[in-house]
């Protein structure tokens, strides 16, 4: 079973459970029916907005925490010069 099938199966079960609850075939445990009636219709939108927010935060945080490493560049430039000098003396064509 590929990941797509597992995700689709989970999504299907959640959707069915949601609609059964929305149309009063199942009841929400530990929650007053009057509140549940108001919450259930907006629940998918809440999930959508939360997911969007999570995506933006994740990418934003990733961008902020992506470190710049100028010291690695400086070290590399020095090593390239050193390598070229040494290789030239050992008879390798370097330009």
């Amino acid at each position: 079973m590929a990941r797509a099938h597992r995700v689709a199966l989970t999504a299907f079960i959640i959707t069915v459970a949601y609609f059964l609850t929305l149309f009063d075939f199942l009841s929400v445990p530990l929650l007053d029916a009057a509140y549940a009636e108001q919450l259930l219709p907006v629940l998918p939108w809440w999930f959508l907005v939360s997911f969007g927010s999570y995506c933006l935060w994740s990418i934003g945080l990733g961008l902020v925490t992506l470190r710049e490493c100028p010291e690695a560049y400086d070290e590399l430039v020095g090593e390239i010069a050193e390598a070229k000098n040494e290789l030239r003396t050992r008879g390798v064509t370097v330009d």
Binding site: E79, I80, A83, K84, E86, L87, V92, T93, V94, D95
Partner: peptide, 9 residues
């Protein structure tokens, strides 16, 4: 250009 240096490293 790159091969000698990467091998050296």
């Amino acid at each position: 250009k790159n091969l000698p240096v990467i091998i050296w490293l």
